[in-house]
């Protein structure tokens, strides 16, 4: 009985789809129905009174037709939006299941292999210590799983406001220099260079140092990861009064236009990023935005597929 009633409760259905009323097909159909009824009655009344002047009737018909056309167009669009939301949901489950399963499968299979009869056969032909390759697989995939769990815990802490968000005053350029230093080995391994350009006399920013470190690590890590071999990354830090602006430019794979609106969503990974680098969790940019929103900052980007991406963020000064 309750579910039958639910079918007629348009507001409840629209709430279920998580779309505003003006984008909800059921509500728009109701509005269109009401307009048609009102229009029919109005035509009758107007026809009765103004039948001698057909221009008035024609004008009313034109206005009503245009209104109905606009509503019909909006309904079609809202169906497209709902279909897109459904597609995104399926994609989301797909990526999450893949990201969680991949390191676990690797761990399980590597352990099973080390314990198997086949391994003893293989081990005979291997030079001493070669089994360490399989222990490396276990180590690497445990780290991958750990990273995923760390990211999820960071998100939970941030969403619940329990993260280490105590604000201090520090130099954003100084923090960035430290992060670049940490990435030195990674940079030379990926044959990528990085240049830091900083304006003089930039004021200190007021934010949580450990959280902003996560932000810069994520952005610099992404820029290197998605740069092609031999690419160059430029970081610019300047005063954009009254805030300090951080800008990171890469010449990497870029973000496909159709994926750009989802880039800050939890677990989302652009199609070309998945192709390039299988290991990402799809959580880095979500965390980055969450942190900056909580620190009174702002993040945005511009990107062109195969050309590169530039991320910007601002932070309040101390």
């Amino acid at each position: 009985m309750a579910s039958k009633f639910f079918q007629f409760n348009i507001f409840a259905q629209c709430k279920k789809y998580q779309v505003p009323l003006w984008q909800c097909p059921q509500f728009l159909f109701l509005v269109m129905g009401i307009i048609i009824i009102v229009a029919s009655v109005s035509f009758y009344v107007i026809g009765e009174h103004y039948v001698s002047d057909p221009r008035v009737v024609a004008l009313v018909v034109i206005v009503v037709s245009i209104t109905l056309l606009v509503i019909a167009f909006t309904i079609t669009r809202s169906f497209e939006d709902l279909a897109e939301a459904n597609r995104m949901k399926a994609e989301f489950v797909n990526i999450v299941s893949h990201q969680l399963r991949a390191p676990l499968t690797n761990l399980r299979w590597a352990t099973q292999f080390l314990l198997s009869e086949e391994f003893s056969t293989v081990a005979k032909n291997l030079s001493t210590g070669k089994e360490s390759e399989y222990f490396d697989i276990i180590k690497e995939n445990s780290t991958r799983m750990e990273q995923l769990i760390d990211d999820l815990l960071t998100i939970t802490r941030l969403e619940e406001g329990r993260a280490d968000s105590k604000k201090t005053k520090f130099s954003l350029a100084g923090l960035t220099r430290g992060v670049i230093e940490e990435y030195k080995t990674f940079l030379s391994a990926s044959n990528t260079s990085i240049e830091l350009k900083e304006e003089t006399n930039i004021p200190l920013v007021s934010a949580s140092y450990p959280l902003i470190k996560i932000v810069t690590e994520n952005l610099i890590g992404n820029a290197i990861n998605y740069s092609r071999n031999g690419g160059k990354v430029i970081v610019e830090i300047k005063l954009s009064f009254p805030k300090v602006e951080f800008k990171i430019i890469d010449q990497g794979i870029g973000i496909p236009f159709e994926d750009q609106k989802y880039i800050f969503e939890k677990f989302f990974r652009a199609k070309n990023a998945v192709k390039e680098e299988d290991y990402g969790t799809g959580l880095g940019l979500y965390i980055t935005k969450l942190i900056l929103d909580g620190m009174g900052g702002k993040i945005w980007f511009k990107s062109q597929q195969d050309k590169g991406t530039t991320f910007f963020f601002t932070l309040p000064t101390g």
């Binding site: 690797n106 590597a110 099973q112 292999f113 391994f119 293989v122 390759e133 399989y134 697989i137």
Partner: peptide, 9 residues
Amino acid sequence: AIQKTLGES
């Protein structure tokens, strides 16, 4: 990891 374990097996 998968290449090595399944491949070698």
